[in-house]
Design a protein around this nucleic acid. Structure first.
Length: 112
DNA sequence: TGGGTGACCATAG
DNA sequence: ACTATGGCCACCC
């Protein structure tokens, strides 16, 4: 069992816990899983999220500025925004409006 | 062994 | 709003 596969699963599990209509960023997930792994690794994990049997709501993960930087990795560049808007998140110019309002921080919401 | 890259982040100017 | 840097860490030459 490769270590990075475990890391993938941990990332996917956290992403699946994001409530509908809420969003988070790569850094927050990396921090929640332990700062040892940088946020780049979270993005790397998301790159593999589409291949998962259990679906991962990757559209709820954006960068720290609330920008939809991962949109080009979806089936179509519009899908990410469409999924978000369908959940009530307003997206303007590839950026989430009132990002602070929708932001969901696992280190705070999943306090152990 | 080393360089380039990336769905990132923080700080500085 | 923009670029530039440095850090991050796994991957692929």
């Amino acid at each position: 069992m490769k270590q990075h596969e475990d890391f993938f699963q941990m990332v996917f599990d956290v992403v699946r816990l994001i409530p509908k209509g809420r969003v988070t960023n790569y850094g927050a997930i990396a921090k929640y899983l332990g700062a040892a792994r940088s946020s780049r690794m979270v993005g790397w994990a998301m790159n593999a999220s589409h291949a998962q049997k259990k679906k991962v709501p990757a559209h709820r993960v954006v960068n720290r500025n609330g920008e939809l930087t991962g949109k080009h990795h979806f089936a179509t560049p519009f899908l990410m925004q469409e999924l978000l808007e369908k959940e009530g998140v307003v997206v303007k110019n590839d950026k989430i409006k009132d990002f602070n309002k929708y932001f969901w921080d696992p280190t705070k919401e999943l306090e152990l």
